[in-house]
Simulated assay, not measured.
Amino acid sequence: MSNKTPKFTVVGAGPGDPDLITIKALKALASADVVLYDALINEDLLKYASNAEKIFVGKRKGCYAYQQEQINELIVSRAKSHGHVVRLKGGDPFIFGRGAEEMQYAAQFGIQTSIVPGISSSYAVPAYQNIPLTKRGDSESFWVITGTTKSHKLSKDVYLAAKSNATVVILMGMSKLSEIVSIFTKENKEAMPVAIIQNGTTDKEQSGIGTIQTIEEIVFQKKLSSPAIIVVGEVVHHKKKLASVYQEVKEESIH
Rank of each mutant, 00 (worst) to 15 (best):
Y64R: 14
K150Y: 06
M174T: 07
V245C: 02
G208F: 05
L177Y: 09
N51T: 12
T211R: 10
I183G: 07
K80D: 00
E53K: 15
A39N: 14
T202I: 12
G62A: 11
I41F: 12
K59R: 11
Y159V: 15
A25C: 08
Q206F: 10
T201E: 10
G83T: 08
G12T: 15
Y66N: 05
R78D: 06
K223D: 09
N72M: 04
V236D: 11
I111K: 07
A25V: 08
G14W: 11
A166T: 01
H84R: 15
T148V: 11
N199A: 13
M174R: 13
D203Y: 09
I197D: 01
F56N: 08
R78C: 06
A100G: 15
E69N: 10
G14S: 06
K241W: 02
N199K: 14
V76M: 07
E251K: 04
V76W: 07
K222F: 12
Y128F: 13
E205A: 09
T185M: 09
N51P: 00
N130G: 01
G58A: 03
V35M: 02
T202L: 08
E217H: 04
V125S: 01
P132Q: 05
R98D: 00
S114Y: 06
K89Q: 06
V57R: 10
V85W: 02
S2F: 08
M1H: 08
F8L: 11
D17S: 03
R98G: 05
Q112W: 03
M172G: 08
A79F: 01
S120L: 12
K135W: 07
T9Q: 03
F109C: 03
T148F: 00
P15L: 07
A13F: 07
I75H: 00
K240Q: 15
T9I: 15
H238N: 02
S225N: 14
